[in-house]
Computed example of a mutant assay.
Amino acid sequence: MAATPTFPLLGLPADEIRRTIRVMNFEQILRFSFLSKRCKNLVAGIQIKRMYFSVFISRSIAVIIHFFGSRYIRLEFYTEPDMYWGEGAYGRKKKLTAPQSVIVSHNGPIGFDIESSTWERNELTMQYWLKHLQDIFNYRGIQSIKFSTDSSQFDRDDIKQVFDSTTEIDIGNTGCVEFNQMVLRNYFPIDDLTIWTDNFRDSKIPPSLLMQNRVKLEVIDRDLDVPITLNDLLLINSKVIIVGNLLSPQQLPKDFITLWQKGSNPNLEYFCVEFSDDEETDEQFFMNGIKYEENPLDRVRNFKSVGFENPIEISGGLDIYRLDGVKATIKIYFEDPLPFFRMFVWFDHCVVEP
């Protein structure tokens, strides 16, 4: 007589097992996947639709798997403050040894009913956890890593070894300029980079960093004494340029438009400036002295840069042209509390046909 499976669900036909897995919540699916190799393969076989993996490194490390419909599962490691310290290449740092516990959080179908639990006495390494998650959710790599408060406490070599498969980096307020520089050197190439001006000594971004060819560069200008300058913008070779919290004079975008028309920033597809004050402006403020064509508001066009997953709908706007005939559209938006300026460059691959 055949042995009865110790876990009753496994005695069902494979199709029934898969149907049952699909109605489990994310924590139940995760627990089931750890029961055996067969269970892991069953979970992987249902091909759960996912969006991407992201990693958030602060005083702890969180791995977040984002799914369609704003659903997610979040696993937080290294929450015990007095553990994991050891001697690394850069002195005494937190090492990515097996985390003693894991906090698992997830939301439900509605999105607001968040459930959380702590898995104690974990013996699995960080590398094992990451690979297991990538296996069961059929996703190789990590879409983005964000470094935030006190992330410099972790051994940077360990971080690079475990989380090495990403091209999207966000360096926030880590508290250590040297650590920021090491991240920029260790992760290469970085196609999508978000940096804060105070990531650098005297809040000055090195020109060599601005000049690198990227898909997207976002700069958050937090230092009011050393604002982003026109020369900084002209050095950027990225296709997508976003500048946030800009205190520089609102004349800056107009000067940028004039020089773009003469041939600066030839790779640019999308330029956005978010201002840090609410000075009243309109499109005409930026276009004084610049030849343009005004579009009616009911003229709607769809734009898609390589830096975006989905198209952007543009109603109206002011069209301008570069010397070589390339067209761009200028828009000012007031939906948010503070205004922001947008410029869309209509390369052939940026035009989305209706």
Rank of each mutant, 00 (worst) to 15 (best):
Y90S: 09
D170T: 07
V351P: 00
T194I: 06
V43H: 10
W260I: 05
V219G: 08
R156T: 13
L246A: 11
Q251L: 15
L42W: 03
F53P: 04
T166Y: 02
L30K: 06
L338Y: 14
E335K: 12
I110T: 14
W260G: 08
S70D: 15
N25T: 01
I320K: 03
V63L: 12
T79I: 08
K254C: 09
S203Y: 03
D135V: 12
Y84V: 00
D221F: 03
Y84R: 06
I46T: 10
S151T: 02
V43C: 12
N245A: 04
G111T: 01
M211Q: 15
E274K: 13
Y90R: 08
E76L: 07
Y72G: 05
D319Q: 02
Y292E: 04
E16T: 11
S33D: 07
T194L: 15
F200I: 03
S264I: 03
Q153K: 07
N41Y: 06
V63R: 05
L30A: 10
E80L: 07
L124A: 09
L12A: 08
F200K: 05
S152P: 07
I332P: 05
R214D: 10
G325P: 09
A98N: 14
V43Y: 06
F347T: 03
G141L: 01
F308L: 08
Y321W: 15
D223I: 11
P337D: 07
D278F: 04
I236E: 02
K254Y: 00
M343V: 14
G317A: 03
D319A: 01
G86T: 10
P13I: 04
L217P: 11
S36Y: 05
F112K: 15
D15E: 08
L247H: 15
K262W: 00
L133Y: 09
V55P: 09
C350S: 11
D336G: 02
Q212V: 15
A3Q: 14
I61Q: 12
L252T: 08
G307K: 00
Q181P: 00
D158L: 00
N245L: 08
D164Q: 12
V102I: 05
M83A: 13
S33I: 05
D336N: 12
H106E: 04
V215S: 05
L133S: 11
L35N: 02
L246I: 12
R222S: 13
L130V: 10
D202S: 15
S60V: 00
S36L: 10
L247K: 11
V177G: 05
L246T: 09
D158K: 05
G86C: 02
V306Y: 11
E313N: 04
D282P: 01
H349P: 02
M1F: 12
S58C: 11
Q261C: 07
